[in-house]
Every structure is written in C-alpha cells, then in structure tokens.
C-alpha cells in the first residue's frame, strides 16, 4: 500500500487483521478519545480519507472506529506540529463527529464479548470497503 496512507483505529480486530498488510495506528481508547487522537493528527497535517461517523451504528452503541488517513507534509516532516497545513474539510468532519458523540449516551459498557466482536466486525467491514475504494 502507499506508505502515505494509514488506518487509525481503536478496533482490535481491525488491528489484528490489517496490521500485516497496512500501516495501522492502533490505540486502545474509548470512541471519543480515539476521535480526539484523529483530531490531533489532522491538526498535525493529516487528511481524513473516510468519514469519521461511518456506519449507522451510532456513537455510544459502538465503541469502535477506524478511519483511513493520508499523512500530510507536516506529519512526514515534523510529526506533532500543529497549526499550519490543517485540512479544513477534515477539521470540520472530525469536529462534527466529536459533537455528535456528545449527543449519545454510552451504552457499550455492559456489552457481552460476542456483541463487541460483532461491532468490531462491522467496523472492520466498513473500513475494508473504504480500502477497496482507495485501491491500496
């Protein structure tokens, strides 16, 4: 795959299944926290390639989110540097995703392992569809 494209995820199944073939950045974090990591990466120059509210399983119902991101020049040069180079469309999408999260109560705490696996599978399938579209 292109070395400039990465998968940012908190989904352990996506990490497990995709890490050998793709550049996967995995964090074991709750949904709103992984979205904040994505936001910070955008401000460091990355571009979103997929929608951060992918899927109609609402925030709070699913604890998992995977996105495709394109490393921007800032990220490749001096990772972590904020400000210049932030893609305005990506900023808008991630901010609206964070706002949307606040509207939904977190119901995922009591999920059975099987339910969590199903939610991981759905998130994985959605990102695989995007990977197919991206031809990576």
């Amino acid at each position: 795959m292109s070395g400039d494209i990465m998968i940012v995820t908190n989904n352990p199944l996506a990490h497990e299944q995709l890490q050998d073939k793709y550049n996967v950045v995995y964090y074991e974090l709750p949904l709103n926290e992984i979205l904040k990591v994505m936001r910070d990466m955008i401000h460091a120059g990355c571009h979103l390639l997929t929608h951060p509210l992918s899927g109609s399983v609402k925030p709070g119902e699913t604890p998992y989110k995977s996105v495709l991101m394109l490393k921007g020049p800032k990220t490749q040069g001096s990772a972590g540097e904020k400000g210049a180079g932030a893609d305005s469309e990506s900023v808008k999408l991630i901010e609206s995703a964070l706002s949307a999260c606040e509207k939904f109560a977190d119901k995922s705490a009591g999920y059975a392992e099987k339910t969590l696996k199903d939610l991981q599978l759905i998130d994985l399938d959605l990102i695989k569809g995007a990977i197919a579209s991206a031809y990576i």
Binding site: L49, T50, H51, S54, L68, I127, G129, A130
Partner: peptide, 8 residues
C-alpha cells in the same frame, strides 16, 4: 452514501 470521501 459511501464511507470513502472520494466516493462521496
């Protein structure tokens, strides 16, 4: 209504 932004 795809997930990939270029598709959109």
């Amino acid at each position: 209504e795809n997930v990939y932004l270029a598709d959109k």
